[in-house]
């Protein structure tokens, strides 16, 4: 690791954060789709869905938060792809900097941008009647899990941004991720689903993450779900990180 790693990462992070502050639309777009879904589910479908919970907003917010992250990381792939295409990536690589700081700056930017989008979505949910009795510690745990989830998906986005051939291709990978929560316990209890779908829904990562966040919000004991959720996030993070770094090394050598 180069002695300039932290300084260079900070400099490049400053650059990307400027990009975000000058294209606030990327954060708004990230937040708008989940908010629209939330409105639709709560005020259109919500009345017909039996969840056993007294407030449907409370029930579905965790899933909406994951959808927010899944759509937000598409911009990381997009920004990375744009850097590669514009030649500024090569400029950075030909300079005496810590080379991996270029990637880390994008990853940290993704964390910041998604955090802002998540806060916006939670604020809208509060307006729609979302209430939680969770204490500071539970909120921190929710934030921690969401950040870990963001980090894992961001490294996935890095792979896509580095290897894409077109702008559309760079962000296309996020669509399946956005739909994954629909096949989980995010919007309806899984026991109403037919056999194979139910099995998939119960064992895919989103369900354990959603259940954990829901339990934290309602101050229920989180049980084993939290460990399964953490294992999925950390596992995905490690695999995606290794693949992203391999792709990166192949790109720059």
């Amino acid at each position: 690791m180069s002695k300039h790693f932290f300084g260079d990462t900070a400099t490049l992070l400053g650059r990307s954060l400027r990009h975000i502050s000058r294209s606030v639309d990327t954060i708004v777009t990230t937040a708008i789709m989940p908010i629209a879904m939330m409105l639709m589910f709560v005020y259109v479908f919500g009345g017909a869905i039996k969840t056993g919970s007294d407030s449907y907003v409370n029930y579905m917010l965790p899933g909406i938060l994951l959808i927010t992250v899944a759509s937000g990381i598409a911009y990381t792939a997009f920004r990375l792809f744009t850097d590669m295409k514009s030649g500024i990536f090569e400029r950075f690589q030909s300079m005496p900097i810590a080379r991996s700081s270029v990637l880390w700056a994008h990853v940290l930017t993704s964390l910041v941008a998604n955090l802002i989008s998540l806060v916006v979505v939670v604020l809208v949910a509060l307006l729609m009647g979302f209430r939680s009795s969770a204490g500071v510690l539970a909120w921190l745990a929710v934030a921690g899990i969401l950040m870990l989830f963001t980090l894992a998906l961001t490294w996935l986005a890095v792979i896509s941004g580095l290897s894409a051939k077109s702008v559309d291709g760079a962000s296309a990978f996020s669509f399946p991720l956005i739909f994954l929560p629909f096949l989980s316990s995010a919007f309806v209890p899984t026991d109403t689903m037919p056999g194979p779908v139910r099995v998939f829904a119960e064992y895919q990562p989103v369900t354990s993450i959603v259940n954990t966040i829901r339990d934290l919000f309602t101050q229920q004991p989180v049980g084993t779900d939290i460990w399964i959720a953490l294992a999925w996030c950390v596992g995905l993070l490690i695999v995606a990180y290794i693949f992203a770094m391999t792709t990166y090394r192949r790109k720059i050598s």
Binding site: R15, S86, I88, E90, R91, S94
Partner: peptide, 20 residues
């Protein structure tokens, strides 16, 4: 690393950050 310390590259397409 020493080479990168000694050079500057101006690539085929003006590599400026358009948003900055």
């Amino acid at each position: 690393a020493d080479v990168r310390e000694s050079i500057s590259l101006t690539g085929q397409f003006a590599a400026v950050d358009e948003i900055l």
